[in-house]
């Protein structure tokens, strides 16, 4: 959506907002299905977690994963993480936690999220959208309806102004 090209996908397949390019139009804030983008009041530009892009570039893991005392945040190649998460869900299911599920791990959700969650309740309980979708889903139908509107308005103009013209 970003009209300035400030939002890029990095070599690590993560998403970073370049604060020197962003002009603070805030289109991305309403477009993001997860509500994770905010305006930095100091810089006046859009901001979100960079997954510690600077640390990734020197081979370190993101600071949150490194620091988390309960290892709730795991970092690594997505395929490995998915395997580990699947095993953990099975373990929980077998232990009687039947609600255990992964959120965003398979490609059903927006083609698969690179950050996904293990939940033990409905997504909305965690403040996560139950069915996140791309904002562009409405683009085609919205545009076509407007084109039809433009044609109808033109016909109304033809009727109104032509009648008047012929009477003159």
């Amino acid at each position: 959506m970003c009209p300035t090209g400030a939002i890029i996908r990095t070599e690590f397949d993560t998403v970073v907002i370049q604060s020197d390019v962003c002009n603070g139009c805030r289109d991305c804030i309403g477009a993001c299905p997860f509500g994770v983008i905010d305006i930095n009041p100091a810089s006046g530009t859009a901001q979100k977690c960079t997954l510690c892009y600077d640390r990734l570039q020197v081979g370190l893991e993101p600071a949150c994963a490194k620091a988390c005392p309960t290892a709730s945040i795991q970092f690594g190649p997505v395929a490995d993480l998915r395997k580990r998460a699947d095993a953990r869900v099975s373990q929980l299911q077998n232990a009687g936690e039947t609600r255990a599920q992964l959120y965003g791990a398979d490609d059903k959700m927006l083609g698969g999220l690179n950050s996904f969650f293990l939940l033990v309740d409905r997504p909305e309980v965690y403040g996560l959208p139950p069915d996140p979708r791309l904002p562009t889903r409405n683009l085609k139908s919205s545009s076509w309806l407007s084109v039809i509107g433009a044609v109808v308005v033109s016909v109304a103009g033809l009727i109104s102004f032509r009648t008047r013209g012929s009477r003159a």
């Binding site: 289109d27 477009a31 683009l139 919205s142 545009s143 309806l145 407007s146 509107g149 109304a156």
Partner: peptide
């Protein structure tokens, strides 16, 4: 009309829940 389309191409309540805002704004603009 595009301003209404712009609103529908977001994930915000009401705006992203319809595809009719472009049409409504176009008619209202006229």
């Amino acid at each position: 009309g595009y301003t209404g389309v712009l609103l529908t191409v977001t994930n915000r309540p009401i705006w992203g829940d319809t595809t009719l805002l472009g049409l409504v704004f176009l008619i209202s603009g006229a």
